[in-house]
Structures are given as C-alpha cells and as structure tokens.
Amino acid sequence: MSMIRRFGALLMAAAVAFGGVSLAAAPAEAASKAATRVVKFTAPASVYKSEAFTLRGTAQRKAGTRWDAYAKPKVEIYFDPAGSARAYRVKTVTGSTKGQFSAKVRTSRSGLWWAKVTVTGTSKAADSYKKLVRVKQRTSMIPSGTTCPSWAPIKGNESSGIYHVPGGAFYNRTNPEICFSTTAAARAAGYRASKV
C-alpha cells in the first residue's frame, strides 16, 4: 500500500510541475518592487479664480535603507474640489532625472491637490500629502487697453480718485487706469463715485 501511495505522490508532483497547476508562491519580482514617495510637494495657499499656478515636488525611490532620486517618474496630479464633487485626475507629467516634477494647473474652485507616483513593473505607487488651495475672487486689475473686462466693468481714474460705472456720464470718455469688479471694491481702494 505504501508503494501505491508513493507512486500517487510522484504522479501528483509531476502533474503540478508539468500540468500547469501552480502551487508555488508569487514570483519574486512582485515582492521586489521598490517603495516610492513624494517629498517637498508645494502648492500656493490661495490663487485667483481661473489663474494658472504651479504644483511642484520630488519623487524618490527606496534603494536598500536610503531614498534616492527617482529618475523620470510618471506623476499624476489629482484635485478634490470642495463641496460634493468627486476627486479626479487633472494631468500626468514626467519628472526630471533628479525626480523633480512640476505641473501648471488652474481652477475655479477651492479644494485639495496632490501628486501620485504611478506604479510600474519595478516601483510601487505613492501619494504626496494633500494641499489645500483656496480660490479667491479678483476684485481689480490694471487694464492693458482703454476698456475694462466684463468681470470688472467699473473704471477708476487714479489721478482724481474717482470711479465711473457703466451708463455714467463720463464712463465712455474715461480711459481706465484700474478696473474694479464692484463699487464696494472701488471704495475699499480709496476711490469715490463720480457725481455725474
């Protein structure tokens, strides 16, 4: 009986080895993926609505007990807008040979921004810390010509300290030196309303 059992065990071993049945552990290369991380991730604390701004950081890869620069990492930029909207990927950038990356973005909403080093065949994924960027509404601007934009239609005359609203007597004749979004913004800047 023991001879039959031994023969059965040999057949089972052959089936496992040659029959495509794998009882072995996961391949060694899966366990050898290097850890990654994002350091020095920076974002401005606040920006004007729809103004372009830059996110920066450095990707590193673990080598033994030390962290080295991760050359040319693929980094995804994510945004989680405040409110009920869901987080989403904004863009993917490639870092430098020293692991440094930057991404120019813009938004009309406050929210959290972060960077994620993407997973590869030899490296694990890693997220940076999340940074809150608040969006503020611009209240004034220096015009490049003789008209004000639609979001800031109030014309300010710097030398007289007077502001002119659309429909006012001198509005069309005034070449603005500054444009305001509201009369309150003009008054807060020290301007007074035109009397006509």
Rank of each mutant, 00 (worst) to 15 (best):
113 W>S: 00
17 A>R: 12
57 G>R: 01
63 A>S: 09
144 S>E: 14
116 K>A: 14
5 R>V: 11
132 L>A: 06
62 K>D: 06
136 K>M: 08
170 F>V: 01
172 N>K: 08
66 R>V: 14
35 A>M: 08
191 Y>V: 14
118 T>K: 06
42 T>M: 00
159 S>Y: 04
151 W>E: 03
164 H>P: 13
64 G>V: 09
191 Y>R: 09
8 G>F: 15
54 T>W: 00
144 S>D: 13
103 A>Q: 03
34 A>C: 05
82 A>P: 00
89 R>C: 06
5 R>K: 15
53 F>T: 14
3 M>L: 14
13 A>G: 06
188 A>D: 10
142 I>P: 00
123 S>F: 05
70 Y>Q: 04
11 L>H: 07
159 S>P: 00
112 L>Q: 11
35 A>G: 02
97 T>Q: 03
5 R>D: 14
6 R>K: 15
187 R>W: 09
86 R>Y: 09
58 T>Y: 05
44 P>D: 04
98 K>D: 13
140 S>C: 10
42 T>L: 00
189 A>V: 01
158 E>K: 11
63 A>C: 04
181 S>V: 11
48 Y>I: 12
79 F>M: 10
70 Y>G: 01
173 R>H: 09
185 A>V: 10
196 V>Y: 04
177 E>Q: 11
150 S>D: 06
69 A>N: 13
82 A>K: 10
135 V>N: 05
103 A>C: 03
145 G>K: 12
119 V>P: 01
88 Y>F: 13
163 Y>K: 04
78 Y>V: 03
115 A>V: 00
41 F>A: 00
145 G>N: 13
129 Y>V: 15
104 K>Q: 10
81 P>H: 10
173 R>M: 11
13 A>T: 04
167 G>N: 05
137 Q>D: 15
117 V>W: 03
20 G>W: 10
